Computed example of a mutant assay.
Amino acid sequence: MFALFKDRNEAGRILAERLRKEAGAGTVVLGLPRGGVPVAFEVAMALGAELDVLPVRKIGVPGHSELAMGAIASGGALHVEHDTMQAAHVTQAQFDAVLARERIELARRESAYRGNRPPASVEGRTVLLVDDGIATGSTMKAAIRALRARRPARIVAALPVAPAGIEAEFEDMVDAFFCVAQPAPFFSVGQHYEDFGETTDEDVRALLQRAWGGQPGQAQ
């Protein structure tokens, strides 16, 4: 199977072209760390929009951390995949233990990425919520719930790649759903990139610094 994108940067530039009609004055692009931030950076630069991050963490099944049984996002939002928990025979105590660890990591990342800088104001604005792709959609759903509490005018989910038909799960959650490609069969996000190397905390901070014109924590 041929890769659809060279890397996250190329995916972001292609995605930006699909989103031009969605971007207007005051549009905010929120990237989901870590892998969604390089994509979101390219979208924000191409559209002349403000860039920020919305930290989110997958809650992985014990022993199979890549399999999501839920997700949490900055602001306290929680999404639980009850069917996955049941199929994997995960107890509530096991779930709570993983949840506690991920909450600690979420707080660490938020501090690392933005320092003392407050989150971008999204109230009354169009928000393009960007990731490098979705498989189950758990992290995106948690991010949307966290974002909705901040009262944006519109939420647009924007992705380079996702499974065919998954947009139906987001019909009641977002105002629009944009995806460059929805190949079948779909096994993982990474299979559709030539280069799907890990995005580090340092990569995220560097991109935010470029977008903000200064160090995280500085006032503009």
Rank of each mutant, 00 (worst) to 15 (best):
V90T: 06
G76Y: 04
E50Q: 11
G133I: 00
A149Y: 03
H89E: 14
R125G: 08
T84C: 13
R145I: 13
A77S: 15
G75R: 07
D52T: 01
A44R: 04
D132L: 05
A97S: 14
I134Y: 06
E50N: 04
A88G: 06
L47Y: 00
H89W: 12
S65F: 12
A73V: 06
G76N: 09
D132G: 07
A77D: 07
P62D: 01
Q86D: 14
R117P: 03
I144E: 04
G48M: 02
D131Y: 05
L147S: 10
A77G: 08
T91S: 15
G115P: 06
Y113W: 11
A135T: 04
T84I: 15
E66I: 07
G63T: 03
V98R: 13
R103L: 13
V98L: 09
K141G: 02
V127L: 12
G48F: 00
Q92H: 08
I104N: 11
V127S: 13
I104D: 14
A44S: 08
A87D: 08
G75C: 01
A93D: 15
L147E: 06
E50S: 11
S111C: 11
I134F: 04
G137E: 01
L78Y: 11
A44D: 00
E123A: 15
P62T: 02
K141C: 01
M85V: 07
A142E: 02
A73K: 04
H82Y: 10
G75M: 05
L67V: 15
M85W: 02
A100P: 10
N116P: 12
I104S: 11
E50C: 05
P119R: 10
A71S: 07
R148F: 02
S121P: 10
A146L: 03
T136W: 02
L47I: 00
H82C: 05
G76M: 07
L51P: 01
G76D: 09
V56E: 04
H64E: 15
E110W: 09
R114A: 04
V127E: 13
R109M: 11
E105A: 12
A149G: 06
A73N: 06
G137L: 03
G63W: 04
A87E: 11
L54N: 09
L78N: 05
R108N: 14
V90G: 02
T84K: 12
D83V: 12
G48C: 04
L78G: 03
T91G: 01
R108K: 15
M85Q: 10
L106Y: 06
A107W: 13
S111N: 13
H79E: 15
M85H: 01
A143I: 05
A73Q: 07
A71Q: 07
A97V: 04
I144A: 03
L78T: 10
P118Q: 08
D131V: 02
R109F: 11
G137Y: 03
L67E: 12
G133C: 00
R145K: 13
P119C: 07
R117S: 14
V127G: 14
K141P: 01
V53K: 00
A93P: 08
T139R: 06
K141D: 00
E66W: 07
